[in-house]
Design a protein around this nucleic acid. Structure first.
Lengths: 152, 152
DNA sequence: TTAAGTGCAAATATTTTGCTGTCAC
DNA sequence: GTGACAGCAAAATATTTGCACTTAA
C-alpha cells in the first residue's frame, strides 16, 4: 500500500522561515526538488534537478542547504543499504516514520509504516531511558517480485 | 546490559575459507582488528590498528577487505547517525541483530537487543512478502546520562 | 603452478572551507 | 543597511581502479 503522497507543498519552506532562516531563491528551489521528488535523490541528482529550474545554482549550495535541512530535522538522510556506492539519499521528513526496504536484486525501494515500529521506539525510550530524536530502519533483501522470478 | 562479547575468535576467518576465499596475512590481520575492536571503527581507524600488527598493510587492502566482508555478510556497515562526518563504521555481524543508539550530546553509542525488533522484522517479511537479508536500525537522541545532566 | 590478492600510484567521488560579492529581511 | 547567504576556487576526505609483483592453495 502506498504512503500518503505530498502534503501541503511549501511545508518545509514555512518551517524554515518560522525558524528565522532566510528563504533564498536557491533554497526555495532545492526544497522544491526534495519535496516533489518521486524517488530518493542523492546530492548530485538534487543538484541536477535544481539546475533545470535555476541553472546558476552551485553544488556547494546544495550541500550547505541539505546540511541545514538535516540539522533542523526537515529532511532525513538515508543510505538505502549502500546499493549504489556510498552515496546518501534525502527525503522530506515524514510525519510518521517509515521503514525503507531495498531489494538487493532489482534495486527497488519500498516504504512501509508499522505500529510495531512505533511500539519498538516506545520500548527503547522506556527501557533505555533514551529520548529518540530521529530513527532510521533500513532493510536489505528480496522483494516479492524478485522472489517469484527467482523461482522460475 | 552488555551484549555477549566475542564468541569463538576466528569465526570470521573460518567463514571466509569455507567460501573458497584466500586467507591472506593481511585479511587475517584486518579480521582480527574488527573482531576484537572494543568500539566501532571506521576504515581509517581499522587501517591504523592493522598497521600496528603489520606495518606494510595498505589502505586499499583495508577498503577491499571491508567490501568483501560486507558482501559476504560477515561485517555490517553503520553510519551511527553521521555524528562525526560522513564516515562509515564496521562491526562483526552479530548472531542476533541489535539496535544502535547514538547520543547526539555525548556521542556515546549504546547497543540494544529487542524481541520487538525481531517481531517487527517478522511482520515486514509477512506483510510485504519481503525476504530480509540484512537490517539496520539506528536512532539518534539523548541518553539517560545526558538527559539528567541537562536538567541541572 | 597459477589465479587471487597486494601494494603503489593515480583517478574519482564526496564533502567541506575560505573568501568576496550579493540579496533577503 | 547589514548580516546571512551564494558562488567560485581550492582543499580535505573518502573510496575506487589499473597494473605489475607476490603468494595462498
Amino acid at each position: 500500500m502506498p504512503l500518503p503522497e505530498t502534503e501541503a507543498p511549501g511545508r518545509l519552506q514555512a518551517a524554515l522561515t518560522s525558524r528565522g532562516l532566510r528563504l533564498t531563491r536557491q533554497r526555495r528551489t532545492i526544497l522544491g526538488v526534495v519535496e516533489t521528488a518521486k524517488q530518493h535523490l542523492d546530492a548530485t541528482q538534487i543538484l541536477r534537478h535544481a539546475r533545470r529550474l535555476d541553472p546558476g545554482i552551485d553544488r556547494v549550495t546544495v550541500y550547505r542547504t541539505l546540511k541545514l535541512l538535516k540539522r533542523y530535522g526537515l529532511v532525513d538522510e538515508l543510505d538505502l543499504m549502500h546499493m549504489q556506492g556510498e552515496k546518501h539519499f534525502y527525503e522530506r521528513r515524514p510525519t510518521r516514520d517509515h521503514i525503507h526496504m531495498a531489494c538487493l536484486r532489482c534495486g527497488k525501494i519500498i516504504e512501509f509504516e508499522s505500529d510495531l515500529f512505533e511500539r519498538l521506539k516506545g520500548q527503547i525510550e522506556r527501557d533505555c531511558h533514551f529520548h529518540i530524536v530521529i530513527s532510521r530502519l533500513e532493510v536489505g533483501g528480496y522483494c516479492a517480485g524478485c522472489r517469484s522470478n527467482s523461482r522460475e
